[in-house]
Simulated scan of single mutants.
Amino acid sequence: MNEILDTAALVLILIGALLCLTAAIGLVRFTDVATRLHAATKPQVLGLILICLAIALSLRSWPVVAFLIPIVLIQLATAPLSAHMVGRQAYRNGTVNEKSLLVDELADSQRTPPAAGG
């Protein structure tokens, strides 16, 4: 049973590391903000979760699991929030290619002032 868990941990670390590597390559290779945000958040978070799961399988200790759970939860909470803030600021700066957007929900809020009530 130990060999099976160790092999599973090895595979999870390998997949997690490959996902983190693809996220880093995506940050370097992609040109616009929206695609870089996808590369920075989606594979990176999944890679971290897989690596944390592999660590828990490898060490087989409840204190380690108790330590890894907040790490994963904080990552799940902060990655989408930071991507949202960066994307919104890029939209305000005009660095987002508006022709590539399928739905532009912020365009209406740009035309109507927040205090106008509409």
Rank of each mutant, 00 (worst) to 15 (best):
L101D: 09
E3A: 13
L19W: 03
P80G: 05
K99F: 01
P80V: 09
L21A: 06
W62N: 04
K99Q: 10
V72T: 15
T95F: 13
A90T: 09
P80Q: 07
A9W: 01
G87C: 09
A115G: 13
P113L: 06
L59I: 03
V72Q: 01
R111S: 14
A107E: 08
W62R: 06
A9R: 02
A115Q: 12
M85K: 15
L10Y: 07
A34M: 15
A77K: 11
A40P: 00
S109N: 11
G47A: 01
W62D: 04
V96P: 03
G118F: 08
N93C: 10
A107T: 12
L101R: 04
A23D: 00
L46Q: 01
G26P: 06
L59D: 03
P113V: 14
D104H: 06
V72E: 05
V45Y: 04
A115R: 14
Y91T: 02
A77N: 13
A90L: 02
L5A: 02
L46P: 12
A83H: 01
D6F: 06
A24Q: 05
Q44R: 11
A34I: 13
A56Y: 00
L48K: 00
T35A: 13
L76C: 15
T78S: 15
N2T: 09
Q110T: 10
L57G: 01
L48E: 04
L50W: 00
D108S: 15
F30S: 07
M85F: 14
L106V: 04
L5Y: 06
L50M: 07
P114T: 12
S58Y: 09
R36F: 06
L73H: 04
L48M: 07
N97K: 05
A8L: 06
P80C: 08
F67H: 09
I74G: 14
C52Q: 07
N93H: 13
L106D: 02
L10R: 09
F30Y: 06
A79T: 12
P113K: 01
R92N: 12
I25Y: 05
D32E: 10
G47W: 03
L68P: 01
L5E: 03
T22H: 01
L10A: 15
I15T: 04
V33K: 06
A54C: 08
L101I: 05
L101Q: 05
S82G: 11
A115I: 14
L59F: 08
I49W: 12
T112D: 11
A90G: 10
Q44V: 15
A34S: 15
G87K: 07
C52S: 13
W62V: 10
V28Y: 09
K42D: 06
T112W: 14
N97Q: 05
C20P: 08
T78A: 14
L27Y: 02
L50E: 00
R92G: 08
R111N: 07
L102R: 14
G16A: 02
A90P: 02
T112Q: 15
A9T: 06
A83D: 02
A90D: 03
L57N: 01
D6H: 04
A40D: 10
E105A: 12
L50K: 02
A34L: 15
L19R: 08
M1R: 07
A39C: 00
D108L: 15
D6P: 01
T31W: 02
L14M: 10
V96N: 05
L18W: 08
T95E: 12
G94E: 00
L19H: 00
L21F: 13
A54T: 02
N97S: 03
R92E: 12
P113R: 15
V28R: 10
G94N: 05
